[in-house]
Amino acid sequence: MAGVLDSVNQRTQLVGQNRLELLLFRLRGRQLYGINVFKVKEVLQCPRLSSIPNSKTVVRGVAHIRGETIPIIDLGMSIGLSGIPQEDLATSFIIITEYNRKTQGFLVAGVDRIMNMNWEDILPPPKGAGKDVYLTAVTKIDDKLVEIIDVEKILSEVSPLREEVTEAIASKGAERVPGHKPVLVVDDSAVARRQIERCLTAIGMEVVLKNDGKQAYEYLKEITEDGSKATDHFELVISDVEMPEMDGYTLVTRCKSDPALSDLFVMLHTSLSGVFNKAMVQKVGADDFMAKFSPDELAERVMEIIDRE
Rank of each mutant, 00 (worst) to 15 (best):
L5E: 09
S7H: 12
L14E: 10
N36W: 03
F38E: 14
V40M: 09
K41C: 11
E42G: 11
V43R: 10
I52H: 01
V59P: 09
R60K: 10
A63S: 11
I65T: 02
E68N: 15
T69M: 13
P71N: 06
L75M: 09
D88Y: 04
A90S: 14
F93W: 09
F93C: 05
I94C: 03
N100P: 08
G105R: 01
F106G: 01
V111L: 11
N116S: 14
M117H: 08
L123V: 07
K127P: 12
V133K: 00
K140V: 14
I148Q: 03
V151W: 04
E157W: 14
L161D: 02
E164W: 01
A170K: 04
P178M: 06
V185A: 05
V186F: 01
D187Q: 08
V191N: 07
Q195W: 00
G204K: 00
D212I: 05
G213I: 07
S228V: 12
L236V: 09
E242C: 05
P244M: 11
C255L: 12
P259N: 02
S262N: 09
D263N: 14
T270S: 08
L272W: 10
K278R: 15
Q282N: 14
Q282C: 06
G285L: 01
S294D: 03
V302R: 08
M303K: 08
I306A: 10
